[in-house]
Design a protein around this nucleic acid. Structure first.
Lengths: 337, 337
DNA sequence: CTGTTAGCGCCTTCAT
DNA sequence: ATGAAGGCGCTAACAG
């Protein structure tokens, strides 16, 4: 049994090719000043020995890792995995690899993940923040040395790209108002901008606050839709709601649970109960009845986020520019609920 | 404007604490022989300067990166993202970060991804192979220096963990046989073990081969379900199938497209057409009618895969042990289709 | 155009 | 128990 195959290094191929290790380095980084002659010789051995540069070493000297950290709050939610899909694709296109971590919405984990990613020398970070008031945002804001972009939510003083949650809320409100809803339920937390816009528009249109209900709390996030199902069916059974009720949800997956709950309660959709989701993920038209939802231009968000991040990475830090906010306008995709 | 904050190094804290850098290293790696006195002093500065070890350097010397590469064929398929969710969770638990890449089912990409990941000094690789006969598998098999586990498919001579696709095919066949299906469609490719088991069991039960149809080709993989929808509606319209037809699909997402196609064609489910998916992902009971599917113990697969991988990593390579195959038995989850 | 010389930040003998 | 020295593989001046 021969010893460990060991990693082939530049020195090895330098020896074989009869040149200095520096020359090898030059060839590999496409430095112009190298004789075509030697260049060929070097490449020959590179192929022959199947040389692969050791990134760890490269990172150490160049202090540039070509690594981007991606921290998401809920890898079980298709919304985030759709984003992840695009982020990976775009980063790969630009020659970056991604380190992905799931914070699971826990602030403690968010912190430790960021520590770890920084230790890995990531060139930049893409973060999907969980809670609107997560203190991780403050920490990131202070950390001038790390290029970063927050996706999916807007936060002061930090670059971010997202859809306007507030505008989304308004769309939901208008939809319900248009379709004769009488009781307005929001499935989420009361401090969520998705609710704020909703509530505002509703109140502007004379809806009394007793008709606006928020059912939800932190627990809901990152729970399967089973939970949404349970919470809602219980709610619908216990409360006495008059007339047509509208349920607007923070995310499509929860809305799916709501649909099932309504169906099981023998309510007619959308005659008795109207449902609006958020994100407009593929599941919307996989379910029956097809879910009406507020769309987010996921691909554009991903593109824009990577774009801004790379710009930050390439700039000479010093900039200290204004935080950049890219906000897309959501759209209501009317389906059958 | 002060200069770059620069990365705090062990040397920095060594200076501050008045000890050698070696001692700092010892403290951080919990080496026993260090005076509690000095240890405390060092830790003090570690906190104070918010020191974070530079992984690149650590990797360079220790040639151990605590990085695991995860290459998946289709990040748009919830099946793979569910696996990813678990893989991330388990790896994180063991102190590993993951580098994820989407091969998109393209062999060319598979190769370049693996090159890149190896250059990053990953300690191990978890691969979801796309095509059963991908040549990447052969390449991996030869590469003794990289610990690796193939998930989701079985391959000779290489560690892997998966559900038995063939057994799954048999379950589908039996289900159709039980429920009076007369025409047996498989939505996938004919060399897929998922089909092989299906076909075998069908033939064993006297089904004539003219009654067994394979519709599909490579194109299907990694296409949205819209494609499945189109292909199937066209097929159902053009072919004249007698009696109840059963459609068994390689994956649940395609099955969802099939359901919609059937519905749009005014076929009754499951009276006229019966549908069976594969993977049993969450979407199965989100759709109406709820999709009957063949389950894969995703979480167990992930656990088992990481487990085996870590074992490989920790072993002294020399082993050269038999390839280890962990094969779970699938189960038919009967729902409404 | 090419080779030599220093490190990058950390870990690991080897002395002390 | 501690420190000094060497090296991991590569890049980046600096000389020729």
């Amino acid at each position: 049994m021969k010893a460990q195959p060991k990693h082939v290094t530049m020195k090895d191929i330098a020896d074989k090719a009869g040149v200095s290790q520096t020359t090898v380095s030059r060839v590999l980084s496409n430095h112009p000043s190298v004789t075509p002659q030697k260049r060929r010789e070097v490449m020959l051995w590179v192929k022959k020995l199947n040389f692969q540069p050791n990134y760890a070493a490269r990172v150490l000297t160049a202090s540039k890792s070509q690594l981007i950290g991606v921290m998401l709050p809920d890898l079980q939610n298709p919304y985030f995995t759709e984003i992840l899909f695009h982020l990976e694709r775009i980063c790969a296109y630009h020659g970056y690899n991604i380190l992905v971590a799931n914070s699971n919405g826990e602030q403690q984990r968010e912190k430790s993940i960021i520590r770890a990613l920084k230790a890995r020398q990531i060139d930049g970070l893409l973060v999907g923040v969980a809670h609107p008031e997560s203190e991780i945002v403050a920490a990131l804001r202070e950390d001038k040395s790390l290029p970063k972009v927050v996706i999916t939510q807007e936060h002061e003083g930090i670059d971010c790209v997202a859809v306007s949650h507030e505008a989304g809320g308004k769309l939901a409100a208008e939809y319900f108002l248009d379709t004769g809803v009488n009781e307005f339920v929001f499935f989420g937390t009361s401090y969520d901008p998705k609710f704020l816009g909703y509530n505002k528009r509703l109140r502007e249109n004379g809806v009394e606050s007793e008709k606006i209900h928020v059912i939800g709390n932190e627990d809901w996030f990152f729970q399967t839709k089973q939970r949404a199902y349970r919470v809602l069916s219980q709610y619908l059974r216990s409360e006495k709601l008059e007339g047509k009720t509208g349920v607007y949800c923070v995310g499509d997956i929860y809305a799916v649970g709501v649909i099932q709950a309504a169906l099981d309660l023998k309510m007619r959709i959308p005659e008795d109960i109207s449902i609006v989701g958020f994100d407009n993920i593929f599941i919307c038209d996989a379910v029956t009845p097809r879910l009406t939802s507020i769309s987010q231009p996921i691909e554009q968000i991903a593109e824009s986020a990577v774009d801004i991040l790379l710009r930050q990475i390439d700039s000479d830090d010093e900039a200290e520019a204004e935080a950049q906010h890219v906000v897309f306008q959501p759209e209501l995709i009317r389906r059958d609920t």
